[in-house]
Simulated assay, not measured.
Amino acid sequence: MDTQMAVKMFAALAHENRLAVFRMLVKAGPQGKSAGEIGAELGIVPSTLSFHLSALEGAGLVQSMRAGRYMCYGVRPQAIGSLLDFLTDDCCGGHPERCGLPMDRVTKASA
């Protein structure tokens, strides 16, 4: 991942509502949630939610899927992994195990 893409992802997450939506979708797993469910659970009106979902999708953090009449949104796990790898790539002078990272992150960062 290049720095510009990382900045774009961070910018998308740098808002209270977008961060809440993103965290909700991480918890929801691969099936995601419909826009209606997201809005109802977080108390975000449809027009505002659409704006936030668009920003998250534009940054490559979430993807939309049509499910009948509804639009559903889910996280893009590969984007999350890439962002974490970007953050920890040079952790602790190239020794991420010293930083207390989970072992799966250490093996990814050193591969």
Rank of each mutant, 00 (worst) to 15 (best):
T3D: 13
Q4N: 13
M5F: 01
A6R: 10
A6T: 04
A6Q: 04
K8T: 04
K8P: 04
K8V: 06
M9V: 05
A11N: 13
A11M: 08
A11K: 14
A12Y: 10
A12D: 03
L13S: 02
L13V: 03
A14P: 01
A14T: 06
H15Q: 08
H15V: 02
R18N: 04
R18P: 01
R18D: 00
L19A: 00
L19W: 04
L19N: 03
A20Y: 01
V21D: 03
V21F: 05
F22Q: 04
F22C: 01
R23C: 02
M24K: 12
L25M: 07
L25E: 03
L25H: 08
L25D: 01
L25C: 07
K27C: 09
K27P: 00
K27V: 08
A28W: 10
A28Q: 11
A28G: 07
G29R: 08
G29S: 05
G29N: 05
G29T: 05
Q31M: 08
Q31F: 09
G32E: 05
G32H: 06
A35Y: 12
G36S: 06
G36D: 03
E37H: 14
G39K: 09
G39A: 07
A40E: 01
G43F: 09
I44G: 02
V45R: 15
V45H: 15
V45D: 07
P46I: 01
S47Q: 12
T48M: 11
L49N: 00
S50K: 14
S50I: 04
S50E: 06
H52W: 07
L53V: 01
L53G: 02
A55Y: 12
E57K: 14
A59W: 10
Q63G: 10
Q63I: 09
S64K: 15
S64L: 00
S64A: 08
S64D: 05
M65W: 09
M65C: 04
M65F: 08
R66P: 06
R69V: 05
R69E: 04
M71F: 11
M71P: 08
C72T: 11
I80Q: 09
I80F: 13
G81F: 11
G81Q: 15
S82L: 11
L83T: 02
L84C: 09
L84K: 10
L84H: 09
D85W: 09
F86H: 12
F86S: 06
T88F: 11
T88Q: 07
D89L: 12
D90R: 15
G93Y: 04
G94R: 03
G94D: 06
H95V: 00
H95M: 01
E97P: 05
E97A: 07
R98I: 08
R98Y: 12
L101A: 08
L101C: 07
L101W: 12
M103P: 07
R105V: 12
V106I: 04
T107G: 01
K108N: 08
K108E: 07
K108V: 06
A109S: 09
A109Q: 09
S110P: 08
S110V: 14
S110C: 14
